[in-house]
Design a protein around this nucleic acid. Structure first.
Lengths: 348, 348
DNA sequence: ATGAAAGCGCTAACAC
DNA sequence: GTGTTAGCGCTTTCAT
């Protein structure tokens, strides 16, 4: 009958095995003055038992000294988040906060686990781009509120009253479509984002609204499900444009710049010229795309600014150590349509 | 004479103020059966004091239940790390680990603070792309070793015997240059990376070696300091190529694909054609660049594979709970030159 | 130089 | 239902 193999050994185990008291072991651990022979003996036992002192016990329950913030994103590879992060770093870094980024990869369950671990590890605050869940089960966010844990959202979550920093996506997306309509386009489709994102809904709604405010008729077929990555834009682009010739739309607005990037490649490979035959509009205004030879017309989201504002609100919340504010702050930043070379006026 | 304003209130404070015992407060905290009036009274005091139970005390010192790994990168916005992360997630996610990413942004000091916080917050293991420090002061990594904390490096650190997963950068960089020489180029420069990176040294050394093994003569002026970002490649590209006409190199190898991307933009704006007038070679083989219209010749690093291998080694280390291994594993993955459209044979 | 004992914030077992 | 007590792993007096 062997001992339960996995139990972590404690300072008492070490003391007992070394034939000294706990305080002596503690002294060794903290490099106090100890007779060399004793020290060596203790260290030998520590080695043997593979003993590691528990950090929280060492602190005697006092909270960790370092200040930390976690930024929960939805897709690790999207530079969109990297640009927001820069803004967060700018504000929080100066104030001594360390930022860590975790990705939910579109999974609600992963998001919940990340939040739980943040609580467990005493992270001081969270900036979250939340997954849109079908469940009414927002329990992890409610838990945060209940615990009075500071957090800021970067997308609205219905049913949660919390701090929010975002742009008006419906409006911005609508303006992009309105621009295309004004340029003479009438066959317009929208390559929509992933189902797990509230922004996907809002940007599609923007398209609907722009049509309803125009002389044109909206048809749900104009909303094409794509996704959030270049692969998605590419795949759907090939499918969609590979399958039609004359009834082809003359313009596409995309969920984001990455989808637009994928679509541009698909069109290139299909021999369809941009903007001559098809106009393409992105969303986000990624800095990285400034290096792309064809300047993309896009909706520029002030990502850096978003990060800064979110961090400011979060830190204020953390440091004022007051519980949930009566009225959560809702910051609506301005998104701006940037017209470049991937769109053209339809003269036909 | 007011109380020290910042002391965190404890369960005893709440109990005292509410006129009940600690256990009653604890019961309220854990939703045990409590008379409604008592519960409300306690909650009111909790609210008033803005009391939050200490997670570690709740666990009674037992280590956090969730398993976690931290990935320390050097530049948050570089998709290179995102691709490695995918590999890490693949392996570690399946095993129930949550990954968080922190960026040192090229600062040795920040790297050290991140490592310290990881220890404080009981992160189970680290995957690190280390900053190259002039100091001999690698104390934070030594601390990790001393504490027996599991970690894997993605770049060599001289003087530290630790697990390592990397490619042979000297060889790979040399092969790129040799390829250019074989294609008839003799005026070749290297846009080198940031000083804080060991890879920068190794890749520059590859250039030197390729020249020394050729019939051509190497000159230190062929190593041009650029950086790691598109902005760096762009800025240095404009400076370098803007300043010369006839004595212009016919080929450039870059520290990474992002620098190459910046250089390509600079050349485009200067009206210099690629590959007709200048051949450009990148490094890393970013997936994202598959969406770039001009396919870039580059050295493909198996980033996904790197992440997987690093995670495997790390997790083995974590779970075998044995202290520092006698012999650290050094995994050298294969990097491969991918020849595409940004380079051409010099026929002149 | 070393040991005994108290205490950090909380939960759990048992009384009342 | 609620209070008492002990104990989680460690550091810190204070003796010895």
């Amino acid at each position: 009958m062997r001992k339960p193999a996995l139990k972590h050994s404690t300072i008492s185990d070490v003391a007992a095995l070394a034939g000294v008291s706990k305080s002596t072991v503690s002294a060794v651990l903290n490099n106090k003055k100890i007779r060399e022979s004793t020290r060596r003996a203790v260290l030998r036992v520590i080695e043997e038992l593979n003993y590691r002192p528990s950090p929280s016990a060492r602190r005697g329950f006092r909270p960790a000294t370092g200040k930390s913030i976690t930024f929960i994103v939805k897709e690790a590879p999207n530079p969109y988040y990297a640009e927001i992060l820069l803004g967060i770093q700018e504000v929080a870094g100066d104030q001594g906060y360390l930022i860590s980024v975790s990705s939910s990869e579109g999974s609600y369950e992963v998001e919940r686990r990340i939040v739980e671990q943040c609580t467990e590890r005493e992270v001081d605050g969270l900036i979250i781009t939340p997954i849109l869940s079908d469940d009414v089960d927002l329990s992890h966010l409610f838990e945060l509120k209940r615990h009075g844990a500071p957090f800021v959202l970067l997308e609205e979550v219905r049913g949660i009253r919390a701090h929010l920093v975002d742009v008006d996506n419906v409006k911005a997306s609508g303006e992009a479509v309105k621009f295309l309509i004004d340029q003479g386009h009438s066959l317009i489709v929208h390559f929509a984002g992933p189902k797990y994102s509230e922004h996907t809904q809002e940007r599609a709604d923007g398209v609907r609204r722009a049509f309803s405010e125009s002389h044109l008729r909206f048809d749900e077929a104009m909303i094409v499900h794509a996704g959030a990555s270049p692969e998605d834009g590419y795949r759907v682009g090939l499918e969609y444009f590979g399958a039609r010739r004359e009834d082809r739309p003359t313009a596409v607005t995309c969920y984001n710049d990455l989808v637009a990037l994928g679509l541009l490649r698909a069109l290139r490979e299909l021999g369809i010229r941009v903007p001559e035959e098809v106009s393409v509009v992105g969303f986000d205004g990624l800095d990285l795309l400034d290096y792309f030879p064809l300047p993309l017309t896009t909706v520029r989201v002030p990502k850096y600014e978003m990060g800064k504002r979110a961090a400011e609100i979060l830190i204020r919340q953390i440091e004022s150590r007051t519980s949930a504010p009566a009225e959560p702050e809702k910051v609506a930043l301005k998104a701006e349509l940037v017209i470049r070379a991937s769109t053209r006026r339809l003269t036909a």
